[in-house]
Design a binder for these strands. Structure first.
Lengths: 193, 193
DNA sequence: CTACTTCTGAGTCAACTTGTCTCATAGGAT
DNA sequence: ATCCTATGAGACAAGTTGACTCAGAAGTAG
């Protein structure tokens, strides 16, 4: 039972992680050295080494602080839920914290196996959630799909990702989201246009 | 007139850039230190410093070696040309060299102004080329657009980018590309289905 | 072929960073 | 009040960085 967490440990970890998140957002993952994080957190350098012997773990934990709870708990009608989820995703993706974590994840995944695994889990989770939600809509008769449901993640999230990382100054209009929705298939008219 | 390029300079630059590209592909931009590049290129460390005083320039030049000549010189019918361009783009994006440059570009653009500018130029060029090609198709009556042509880049390239950086093990089937094409608008029947 | 200019690579050097270790001390449990 | 443990300060060797020097090789011009 790890039931008695020393308050000092809790405090140190929190301060370091907050500093790491700030540095990640402001200057990118390369700034997450033990020294800089320790200085920013107002903490001894040795303390950072104690809790995170390898800088990679520090980056991982800092990224984990920004979670991505998208496409969870679908509601009916699925179309309205999906529209709202895509809207939220588009808006969140351009937030500095989220963008920093996203690009660091995509970038790090190319060369660091630990991050590759994280990325794969995220991608699989998103694809799976979307597939399930859409499958339920198909089952209930709300949606007549226009193609493989396994492609839905790429089709729906892809354009939002493109805007966030390649054209960050162009916001995603609601009309674009509507277009993405229509592309998934034919939706039964539910009055929400 | 810089008409007399010293062969020694040419040779050194070529060797260093080749080494830099290899390192970028194999280990990412963080590996592009003067020391490692010099060692890999079989060149003196001072030589690398002479030509690229700042490591950032070295990264930029190494990335420039992998160009992205997509969506150039549209032909008619535009639909067939676009399908072929998307096919090539999807296939190229997963190549190690291209993927390394792409993710480094997206990642670096978040914090390094020089790379931000590169990314913006690339994004603007792709959007512009696509917009022009589609506009000509509209003008010739080949395409009846289903929405803003300025969104075409995000709609067409976004899903391919998503697959490349988030689901690199899932190839892009031709059926997905066909789906992307149909989403741009209604194409006049040209017999190529 | 000779004399010149320029680039190269090896090396030195100080400043800095990294990872490890020690130790006095303060915060927190009992 | 007493013990325990995490902390922060600092020391330390090893490695890296960026700047510099210099002899010699490569290339050019006569």
């Amino acid at each position: 039972m790890a039931d008695a967490p020393d308050p000092r440990v809790t405090r140190s970890r929190a301060a370091v992680l907050a500093a790491a998140r700030d540095l990640l957002r402001e200057e990118g993952p390369a700034a997450l050295t033990h020294q800089r994080v320790a200085a920013r957190a107002g903490v001894g350098r040795a303390t950072v080494y104690r809790h995170w012997p390898q800088p990679e773990q520090l980056l991982t934990d800092a990224m984990a602080g920004v979670s991505m709870p998208f496409f969870l708990d679908p509601t009916t009608p699925v179309r309205a839920w999906l529209r709202q989820q895509l809207r939220v995703l588009a808006d969140e993706l351009v937030l500095p914290d989220v963008l920093a974590v996203t690009t660091s994840l995509l970038h790090g995944a190319v060369w660091q196996p630990a991050i590759t695994e994280r990325r794969d889990r995220l991608a699989a989770a998103m694809a799976d959630r979307l597939r399930r939600a859409l499958a339920s809509a198909v089952h209930s008769g709300e949606l007549r799909p226009a193609g493989d449901l396994d492609d839905a993640a790429a089709l729906l999230i892809g354009p939002l990702l493109y805007r966030a990382v390649l054209e960050p100054r162009r916001p995603v209009p609601d009309t674009l989201i509507a277009r993405l929705l229509d592309q998934v298939g034919a939706w039964a008219d539910d009055g929400t246009s």
